[in-house]
Write a protein that binds this DNA or RNA. Structure first.
Lengths: 163, 163
DNA sequence: CGTTATTAGTTAACATATAAACTATCTCTT
DNA sequence: AAGAGATAGTTTATATGTTAACTAATAACG
């Protein structure tokens, strides 16, 4: 009966719409990506969220980045930012300095050690991504990205870097 | 310069391949889906993983389901299954019964209360999925699912129901 | 049979995630 | 300038997730 997806079925009691098929496939796809990438980061002593944090801090270096800003960039709660940064600070991968103009704020920056670690990860990264996306050719990968971004565009994303 | 994706940029120091675009878009798409669906489940007192657990238990009802089986189905570690089931058991949504033939095993099943809760969630589910996938028409949704499933097919998935 | 292996599940230690309540600081209004 | 309110960050409580170390029960075989 089913033309595609013999590997698993959706034997439930609510309707099998294209929307459902799409959501389920994205959730499974993300799971597969996470399972492949997580050991890659672990080889450098990083968790995936820690890698994300360092990546964002590297991209924003030069700016005065508050912890709230980081939470918005990463779609992560502010308490979680606090805890994650504490660990990264302990590992000397990031620094926090109090803003003397507004002593509530703390500016976060990546250290030289953090940047150096990031470069090591990046050297392996393209091979990892290639491995994850085996199964799709470049044209299909572009098509996939196009569709996902079109979906994302419909979700007005309130928290973003430009104010 | 960039033809697509004005919303965000990948200003880093490793190459911007189609594979990277695809992976980033899937990760972001999953994030968007999670942010939309999580409050939906919360309205019924469930977390997303708890909903997944109940869904699988419902699908497998009639079979004698061990906790290891659940871990494999959900791609979740066995200790995590223990903890999650303890909470669901406390809420009377699932039951655990020791297998008298092999007293190491415990068969897990969804309770009537669990099934009834699941039905309530399902009633709202199609509207939620529709909302998440606004932005794509049905043809695009099918295309997206097709591409994701093709990607998934290349990841030989060792842990599955048929032994 | 009895020692050894393996298997199912749990516990412990830790990282990530949230919401809610708290502290410290600044801003705004009068 | 004083008090009300807002803002940045932390702490607390709880849920999810991992790996490693443990318990209890079964299986293997000598």
């Amino acid at each position: 009966m089913s033309k595609e997806s013999k590997t698993w079925d959706l034997a439930d009691e609510f309707p099998d719409t294209p929307a459902r098929r799409a959501v389920v496939s994205v959730v499974r796809g993300f799971g597969a990506i996470a399972r492949r990438m997580s050991p890659h980061y672990a080889r450098f002593g990083l968790t995936p969220p820690q890698f994300q944090m360092l990546t964002v801090l590297n991209r924003l270096s030069g700016e005065q980045v508050t912890q709230r800003r980081l939470g918005r960039e990463l779609y992560v709660s502010f308490p979680n930012v606090t805890v994650m940064l504490s660990r990264l600070e302990q590992a000397n991968l990031i620094e926090r300095k109090i803003n003397v103009v507004d002593r509530r704020e703390r500016f976060v920056s990546i250290t030289r050690k953090g940047r150096s670690l990031l470069r090591k990860v990046w050297k392996e990264q393209p091979a990892q991504l290639e491995c994850v996306m085996t199964g799709l050719d470049d044209s299909e990968r572009r098509q996939l990205a196009r569709l996902m971004n079109k979906m994302l565009a419909s979700h007005t994303r309130p928290s973003n870097e430009e104010v």
